[in-house]
């Protein structure tokens, strides 16, 4: 193929070369832009965006974490005071219950005691009453028995004496 080629005419300008280079450089530029420059610049841009986003989201999550910590702190405080209130309430109600129970028990005991006294009084009265009746009956019986019998003077005197004595005792 070189056989037909002319050797350079020393003083002519290779206009063909110039056009060839300009055209092929433009083509090469387009190819490089499409296949190499475009993807790599896009990737670098994506990475820059991602890093920026990551920094932003790190900032946001840091703030969120701080907020959460504060919230947790205040909730802890709340629950602490709540617990204190609960314990206080429980103490108070325990105290009042205790007082109530004691009062009730005292009242009951008082009532029981009164009942007992009352019962005892009643029983004593009953016993006294029945004893009186018995004594009366017995006296009547004794009197009737004595009356049925012949009273001697001394017996009569003794009887009267005892009667008078009894009167004096009354």
């Amino acid at each position: 193929m070189f056989a037909q080629s002319v050797l350079a005419e020393s003083n002519s300008l290779y206009v063909g070369d110039m056009i060839f280079y300009i055209v092929s450089l433009v083509i090469l530029m387009l190819l490089v832009k499409k296949f190499a420059w475009g993807p790599v610049v896009k990737m670098m841009q994506d990475r820059a965006d991602k890093i920026a986003n990551d920094i932003d989201s790190a900032e946001t999550s840091r703030e969120e974490a701080t907020k959460l910590a504060e919230k947790r702190e205040s909730e802890l405080q709340n629950s602490r005071s709540e617990a204190a209130t609960i314990v206080g309430n429980a103490k108070q109600s325990g105290e009042s219950q205790r007082t109530q129970i004691i009062t009730t028990a005292q009242n009951e005991a008082q009532a029981l005691k009164e009942n007992g006294q009352h019962d005892a009084e009643q029983a004593r009265e009953d016993a006294l009453k029945s004893a009186k009746d018995d004594v009366a009956n017995l006296s009547i019986e004794i009197a009737s028995k004595i009356i049925h019998k012949e009273l001697s003077a001394s017996d009569q005197k003794a009887l009267i004496d005892s009667y008078i004595e009894g009167l004096g005792k009354e």
């Binding site: 080629s5 002319v6 050797l7 350079a8 020393s10 003083n11 290779y14 063909g16 070369d17």
Partner: peptide, 24 residues
Amino acid sequence: MGGDAYTFKLFGLMFNWTNVLSGL
């Protein structure tokens, strides 16, 4: 300008083989 290189003519334009091949 080139001196002693192989050249060829196409569409009336002068091409230099050295430049064309090296360029490619």
